[in-house]
């Protein structure tokens, strides 16, 4: 199973980025193989509008089924949930820690956007 995490850096020790749509990149963690890859999100970081939607598409197309991020806006939520992706929120900490918390079942799953657009 693949987990996408919004990331401020390129490895597992990097902090989770609190933004979803305008995160600099995503770590895609494959928990069966225990491997990860990094994908750059610069294109959406600089988008005039629709960053959340396009980032959601990136996550969907990566084959991830779970997303861990800091905040998610209404359009990103609508896009992600239409593809059945489960969204979990975290605050602070590294990607490694976020995955551990997800596995321990302590992350909060959201069933709606937690912030307005352009947060």
């Amino acid at each position: 199973m693949k987990i996408a995490i919004s990331a401020s850096g390129k490895d597992m020790k990097a902090p989770v980025d609190e933004r979803f749509g305008r995160a600099p990149g995503f770590i895609l963690f494959d928990d069966t193989a225990d491997k990860f890859e990094y994908i750059n999100n610069n294109k959406n970081l600089e988008a005039a509008q629709g960053a959340g939607i396009q980032s959601a598409k990136t996550v969907i197309d990566s084959g991830s089924v779970v997303l861990i991020t800091g905040n998610v806006g209404p359009k990103a939520y609508a896009t992600l949930s239409s593809a059945g992706i489960e969204i979990y929120l975290t605050s602070g900490g590294t990607i490694e820690e976020a995955i551990a918390a997800y596995r321990a079942g302590t992350l909060k799953k959201v069933d709606n956007a937690n912030v307005e657009g352009h947060w």
Binding site: A47, I53, K57, I60, A83
Partner: peptide
């Protein structure tokens, strides 16, 4: 040009306010 339509798993999703 405005990201108002996104294809999710083969289905277009429309964001009217974009």
């Amino acid at each position: 040009a405005f990201n108002a339509i996104v294809l999710v798993k083969g289905k277009p999703l429309i964001f009217a306010d974009m």
